[in-house]
Amino acid sequence: MLKTLATILKDNWKWRKQIGHLAVFELIKKTRGAILNWAWLFIKPGIYMLVFWFALDIGLKAGGTNSYPPYFLWLLSGIIPWFFMREILNIGSNVYHRFSYLVVKVRFPLSGISTINSLSALIVHLGLMVIVLIVYFSFGMPLDLYLLQIPFIIVVMFIFFNIFSVLTSQLSALSKDFSNLLKSIVTPLFWLSGIIFDIYQVNIDWIHTLLLFNPVTFFATAYRDALYTKSWVWENPSALLVFLFVFVLTLVIMLVVYKRLHKEVSDAL
């Protein structure tokens, strides 16, 4: 298993330049054919965010009145990582079909194909983070040490979801059931996470515990801790331990699956 992990890391390192360039090409492809090309990468999440804010703050009055820091920031810091995670769940879990050329026509490391997609999602995410920080400071929020958590969270999120993408894309290549299953859990993963409500407000214990096992909860909460609640990730050890458990479990399953299936993928596509 460690050998599989070493192979995956070695492949990704050896092909890092190609992976980087292909990730940029992915973004270029997305932006072609529109006058506002690059702007669309940010307009879409922007509209999504505004709609949620309108529905929750103005419509449902979830934010209460005159709270400080503003409810908008609470919502923003939870939703921003979601855009990255949604990209992996939607596309990252089916990369071999999208990049079938790299699988069946040329010899490209399979795990690197997931990285291409994750990396292009990460570039957009970094752009969004710049916008988030502009909004953050324009609300008069302080420049403090808690913000230092963000780069680490981004790195962990990238690694975790890249592992997830390698795992699910292998499974999706072999059976359509997996891609269908993943497509149908994207919405539940969003609503059964801490993105638009505080899971600590849920009074039923077992539901609360269950929600902690959703990695989306961990990342939404971590971003919120840094930008809004102003606490450190380790101040909530149970959430951190549960996430570590999920992380290791996902990694182990990915390695087992990759070892067993990677030679079958090109025949199965």
């Binding site: 330049k17 270029i28 026509k105 040329v106």
Partner: peptide, 22 residues
């Protein structure tokens, strides 16, 4: 195979070269 209709010919040369590990 592997050419993308949204990119130009020149970009596709680069794209395919990257895919081959150049």
């Amino acid at each position: 195979a592997g050419f993308d209709g949204r990119l130009t010919g020149r970009e596709n040369i680069s794209l395919r070269g990257q895919a081959l590990g150049l």
